[in-house]
């Protein structure tokens, strides 16, 4: 069983996102350690991009802070090598197509496999373009995670039936960022996905509170939280690991405790 499938096996999963190198690489390391120690079942590691077109202001600023701290793809690979000596939960990279393509797709994905990165999430790689990276991902056994959006409609069957790892359900229109309310009929989307795939479904975009997390965990297999964590990091800087740990614990408790 893959590490990713394993993460969803027993309970609802809590997935944390961080931007690597925000505010610096050592703090990122400690944040990841704290997130894992406090119950994160999977961690999405964002490799910063200069122009993250699918992100709202919170993660855009994190990308900028990280790049200004001198972070590079190679330094992030080194960080993961260190992490893998102590952490066994699934880790996936979230980054933009150009970061992978420009590094050399084969070299990037081969390195992912070497350092035990389990999957890739690429927000600017829709189904139609997945062959840009899919053959290489298959060669090195790195899952290429598919996203399904509120606008996907008839595309759901096609995307879900070929998906790998887990399915990333985008909660609402727009870019990443905290939302006070999510109005999409996610129940219907997930039911539709389940007709075409037995992979776990995790919902992301806009989730920031334990209440929202619990609500999403009732209909999905996992909950992804990014901007709310990035906000904590922006506020506390190098002191952030402890606060992120506390937050992750509260969110994990919420997704585990979803009885009405």
């Amino acid at each position: 069983m893959s590490r990713i499938i394993n993460a969803f096996k027993n309970n609802k999963a809590f997935i944390a996102f961080i931007t690597c190198g925000d505010p610096d690489i050592n703090t990122s390391l400690n944040i990841i350690r704290e997130a894992a120690r406090n119950g994160a079942d999977l961690i999405e590691l964002g490799i910063p991009f200069s122009d993250p077109t699918a992100e709202g202001p919170v993660i855009q600023e994190a990308n900028l802070r990280a790049l200004n701290s001198g972070i590079t793809t190679d330094k992030i690979f080194d960080m993961v090598r260190t992490l893998r000596l102590e952490i066994n939960i699934p880790l996936v990279f979230m980054t933009y197509a150009n970061v992978i393509f420009s590094y050399g797709s084969e070299k990037f994905i081969r390195t992912c496999s070497e350092i035990q990165i389990d999957g890739l999430i690429i927000p600017d790689l829709p189904y139609e373009e997945k062959n840009e990276f899919l053959p290489t991902c298959e060669k090195y056994h790195v899952d290429l995670i598919s996203m399904i959006a509120p606008t996907s409609e008839k595309r759901i069957a096609m995307i879900a039936s070929e998906a790998e790892g887990f399915i990333y359900i985008v909660s609402s229109l727009g870019v990443t960022g905290v939302r006070s309310e999510i109005t999409t009929d996610l129940d219907a989307i997930i039911q539709s996905v389940r007709k075409h795939s037995s992979l776990p479904c995790a919902i992301g975009f806009g989730i920031s509170t334990p209440q929202q997390a619990a609500k999403m965990a009732r209909i999905a297999d996992g909950v992804i939280v990014g901007s709310a964590i990035i906000k904590i990091i922006a506020k506390y800087g190098r002191e952030a690991p402890e606060y992120v740990g506390e937050f992750v614990k509260s969110m994990k408790d919420a997704v585990l405790n979803i009885s009405d």
């Binding site: 829709p126 189904y127 373009e129 996203m147």
Partner: peptide, 21 residues
């Protein structure tokens, strides 16, 4: 058909926009 000019072009955009294009 998929909007390629040699190796260039394509549709590298979020899933959310695919039905719109």
């Amino acid at each position: 058909q998929s909007g390629r000019f040699g190796i260039h072009g394509g549709q590298y955009i979020p899933e959310t926009l695919m039905n719109a294009v």
